[in-house]
C-alpha cells in the first residue's frame, strides 16, 4: 500500500443508524467538507474492520453503495478511490456565503435568540427551502 488512507470511520453502535450507512454518511460528509478529494484512497476493508471490529461485509456494502452513486471507484488490487467531490465547492471555498451566515447568526443572537432558537429557525428555513428535494 503506497499511501495511507485519507480518512477513518467512527462507528457508533448505539446510534440506531445502520453501520454501513454510517460509513456512507461519513464519506459523504468528508467529501462535502473537502477532507476527501478526487484521487484519495478510502481505507481498505481490512483497515476499517481492524480498527472498528465491524463485519467486513458491512464495509463492502457501504463501498458498493458509494460506487453505485458514482462517488468512488474500486480499482482491482489497488483499493477504492474517490472519483468526485460532493455538493458545491462553495461550502469550503466561498467565504462570502459563510460570512453572510456568520453575520446573520450574530444578528440573531443580538436579537435575543439562544443557540436552540437559532438552530430551530435555521432548520425550519432549510426544510422549507429544500422541500421535495431528494436528501
Amino acid at each position: 500500500m503506497a499511501e495511507s488512507a485519507a480518512v477513518e470511520f467512527r462507528i457508533d453502535r448505539r446510534s440506531g443508524v445502520a453501520t454501513y450507512l454510517q460509513i456512507v454518511q461519513q464519506t459523504k460528509q468528508a467529501l462535502r467538507l473537502g477532507v476527501l478529494e478526487p484521487g484519495d484512497r478510502l481505507p481498505t476493508a481490512r483497515e476499517v474492520v481492524e480498527a472498528t471490529a465491524i463485519n467486513p461485509n458491512t464495509v463492502l456494502k457501504a463501498y458498493r453503495e458509494l460506487e453505485r452513486e458514482g462517488l468512488v471507484e474500486a480499482r482491482r488490487g489497488l483499493g477504492t478511490f474517490v472519483r468526485r467531490t460532493l455538493g458545491s465547492a462553495a461550502v469550503t471555498t466561498d467565504p462570502p456565503l459563510r460570512a453572510e451566515l456568520a453575520e446573520w447568526t450574530r444578528r440573531a443572537r443580538a436579537a435575543g435568540l439562544d443557540r436552540d432558537d437559532v438552530h430551530a429557525l435555521f432548520t425550519d428555513v432549510l426544510d422549507s427551502t429544500f422541500k421535495g428535494d431528494q436528501h
Binding site: T44, A45, R46, E47, V49, E50, A51, T52, A53, I54, N55, P56, V59
Partner: peptide
C-alpha cells in the same frame, strides 16, 4: 475490541 478487530481483519 482489539482482538475482534484482528479477527475481522483476518476474515476480510
Amino acid at each position: 475490541h482489539q482482538l475482534m478487530g484482528l479477527l475481522m481483519a483476518e476474515a476480510a
